[in-house]
Nucleic acid binder design. Structure first.
Lengths: 233, 233
DNA sequence: CAAAATTTGTCCGTATGTATC
DNA sequence: AGATACATACGGACAAATTTT
């Protein structure tokens, strides 16, 4: 009369245990093979694999197979957070891929955050953050228009250097808001995740020492690949 | 020749749009009814509903129906974070349900974090955090053994009061590490989520003004119901 | 470069179990 | 107790992407 856990969960747990001894990049047997091994229908195996994928343990690609995922990267958050410096301190090789830099009239929310009238032109940058060549985050930031800022941002040298080149030597984090959300299709594509996988959304405002807003940004980190650290300065 | 998105996704997006006009607690039509409405198999509707559930928009209960989920709660993180005070400041009614308080030899990790020899007895507390009667988090903390601490924690008045009653009037957050993870079955049960839904894991260390570790805890927040704020002191 | 084999993704249909109302 | 509704599991078929031949 015991209520056994569902078959797919038992399979998922068995695979999870076995995955502990696997290395990132290793390929799992095909669904058909696993179904034969466990003596169940292929759909039942798929259910179990979906659970593992949700857990960020594996990643399936049609035509290819199911691969074991890479372990997480650490990322500190603080008043003086700097992406590159933080990653380098952990011995990783940071990277950045700028997808677009445009100057456009800002949306209502963006203008409000930067404390400028609605419709004011803003510099909008979008791109990906890398660690050891692996995408760990997608950012979208807006800045007030400064001479040469767009060009500097497009060079991909980072926000700190771009602002420095525009005569702003220092800035600090005013606040950060974090929440765990499922990846939407677009984001899943950028972060090489499956739709619905946990993603950490960080909404943040940076300002200069006098409190003037400089950057309002939304970054999404791949939940399974990043740990955010909050530490006192 | 157009590559249409899958049926289940189209249905999910249609339902998502309609859900914008729904109120928390509203019930969706049954799977059979939705299948009939969209002219698809029930499993295709189930796939769409699973996506909505992953997104934290709805919550399905066997036998009952599929209900619309409640909006998120905000929760600040900082050097002097206090759960109750923070929630009260947002106009919500905080609550706490203590599930267990035990004194046991600590695990290796717990002892290391509290800077005591492995195997030292520790006070271990586990429970749920509520906001307006809704579970928003599950915590598990370990403390060094202090006279009367276990009894005070069991009263459910909170960590701050329990420590105060043991002669520790003040403590601060040393650090916090955050990551987005999918809910495992146990956690899903506690937080009333579906297995795999995004959950924010906060691992934190509190210490007294002299730097002596006082509490090492892991809290899991329901991603869809909580926003964590990181602000300078 | 092209075709074939492999592998995952989607969708349908059916049946049964189990929790809720 | 009965009806309703979601959960699990099986089976088959075809499409789409990738890898191999």
């Amino acid at each position: 009369m015991t209520a056994d856990p569902p078959l797919w969960r038992q399979i998922a747990e068995t695979l999870t245990a076995e995955l502990a001894a696997a290395r990132p990049g290793d390929r799992l047997p095909s669904e058909a093979r696993l179904a034969a091994r466990f003596g169940v229908n292929r759909h039942t195996v798929r259910r179990a694999l979906a659970a593992l994928a949700e857990a960020g343990l594996v990643h399936a690609r049609r035509g290819a197979g199911v691969q074991v995922t890479a372990p997480p990267t650490d990322y500190p958050i603080g008043r003086r957070t700097r992406f590159h410096a933080a990653l380098e301190a952990t011995g990783r090789v940071p990277g950045r891929r700028v997808l677009s830099v445009e100057t456009q009239p800002g949306l209502a929310e963006d203008c409000a955050m930067l404390a400028v009238p609605e419709g004011t032109p803003l510099v909008r940058a979008e791109g990906l953050s890398l660690s050891d060549g692996v995408v760990i985050g997608h950012f979208r930031s807006v800045f007030p228009v400064l001479p040469g800022l767009a060009a500097e941002l497009a060079r991909g040298e980072g926000v700190t250097r771009a602002l420095a080149a525009c005569g702003i030597p220092d800035y600090t984090r005013a606040w950060t808001r974090l929440t765990a959300v499922p990846a939407d299709p677009l984001l899943a594509g950028h972060l090489q995740l499956r739709r619905g996988e946990p993603v950490m959304r960080a909404v943040a405002l940076n300002h200069d020492p006098r409190g003037q807003p400089l950057e309002y940004g939304i970054t999404h980190f791949a939940g399974a690949r990043v740990t955010l650290s909050v530490a006192p300065d």
